[in-house]
Design a protein around this nucleic acid. Structure first.
Lengths: 251, 251
DNA sequence: CGACGGTTTGAGTCCGGTCAATTGTCGTGG
DNA sequence: CCACGACAATTGACCGGACTCAAACCGTCG
């Protein structure tokens, strides 16, 4: 019972915070399921019994849009991109997922997006039916799933504002700021980020072209707000300015 | 117990289908809460005891972005728009809500969007704390909320594709097709829709300007695919063509 | 070293935005 | 019933930001 309350308290916090706050976090501890911060050993063994640990190399596809949705999955290590395609090949990346992120909230009987590894990835695979049974039996998990879905909806709406109303430059600034904010939450250095994705990926995420993204970065560089280092590393010199641009103060 | 299963079966269906399928649907019956198709009288009285029925005229604001999130609400009659603003006034409408739609899945401690009535609106207001207690006590409701959130996430991703990768003409076609699909689900005439929102609203939903939306409509008209009638009514003559354009077969 | 994929840079085009004027619609009141 | 005003919708002319096409420039890895 006390356990249940511990889990309930974390409901409206982002995944990263939860992980750091709770010593018993399954993701950071056993690295299996990041949804429940405090799970009794009995339930945990149920989870352990249905999970299968997998790996994928960069470029490999984890899930295919349109396939029957048989599994939930949990990213343990690495980065993946989630995208949808139009019939003629135009692509929209709806999100990049990092360790601790869960995949499976946003589909019904078939997967509605394709998921592809950007880096070598470790992940956990849960047969959907069995996973749902565990959720049925351990109620705090359902609460957490709902809380996560709620958070993702908020993020999705933010993304819509970006796609629909921000300029190219603002989009790029928003993208960088989102990465910085994420770094802050997992307590890394906040003034530099590593881009594991290509310019084309960033473009497909921001609703732009590779060329425009590239031009955007060089412009931020010449204005002295960022530095482009080797290995896709970006050092942000003027977080303040970048943040203001990202917010969309004015055109 | 049998009740619980009845509710569980409807999990991955859209709200409209649920309403029509279940005779005891709270929304279509008592018009109070559309989340649970089959709720025991005892729980239902709990719901009834915390709800307050409200009305709003067109143009009135139901919720304000940034305000403390004290309530959930359920649209009973009319249409509302949900939007976010950038500091300089640019606006992105993230969705239009219709009877049966629920508001409250996508916010945490403060409202993340503003909600405004497009037509005179009837809605139900639930104090958040008490609402959550009811959810705690009637588990199928939590499952339904999760299912809804999941559906909304899928829709949000579809929206991102539209905003990021579709042309103006395709956006307009997608918008009309979405309205037609919705009409079909609630069993209305499928070949005509009524636009309760202005061109400016449509523009802010599609990430365009009023002028572009207007031009888009007239072009669809001159091509003979739609007819613009009085009272904001749009008759779709060639659903096939419109649907193909909306899907984004090619530019 | 050379090949290959990713990135940057350049020149030109076009889609959708901007600004401005006109037309249409609807509710109100004389 | 019609005239009027306010606001929405349409249409036109022009502009500009992002796209397209193309070439040059990397960095990495066999």
């Amino acid at each position: 019972m006390a356990m249940a309350y511990a889990a309930l308290n974390t409901i409206n916090e982002p995944a990263e915070r939860r992980c750091n706050a709770a010593a018993g976090c399954v993701n950071c501890g056993a690295r299996e399921l990041s949804v429940c911060a405090a799970m009794p050993a009995s339930d945990m063994s149920r989870v352990t019994s249905i999970v299968s640990h997998r790996r994928a190399d960069a470029g490999e596809t984890l899930l295919n849009e349109g396939d029957k949705a048989t599994h939930f999955l949990n990213i343990v290590d690495g980065t993946v991109k989630v995208y949808k395609l139009l019939p003629d090949g135009r692509r929209q990346i709806t999100g990049f997922l990092y360790p601790g992120d869960l995949l499976g909230l946003a589909f019904n009987d078939t997967y509605t997006s394709t998921v592809e590894a950007l880096t070598p990835v470790k992940y956990c695979l849960f047969p959907r039916r069995q996973f749902e049974r565990v959720v049925d039996e351990f109620r705090p998990m359902e609460k957490q799933l709902l809380a996560r879905a709620s958070n993702e909806l908020v993020a999705a709406q933010e993304q819509m504002v970006m796609l629909g109303r921000k300029t190219a430059q603002e989009k790029i600034a928003s993208f960088l700021m989102a990465l910085i904010d994420r770094n802050r939450r997992v307590n890394k250095r906040s003034d530099s980020v590593v881009l594991t994705m290509t310019r084309a990926d960033i473009a497909d995420y921001l609703g732009l072209t590779t060329e425009t993204v590239s031009r955007g970065f060089t412009r931020l560089k010449t204005e002295g707000w960022i530095e482009l280092c080797a290995g896709g590393k970006v050092r942000v010199c003027d977080v303040e300015a970048l943040s203001e641009l990202a917010a969309g103060a004015d055109r």
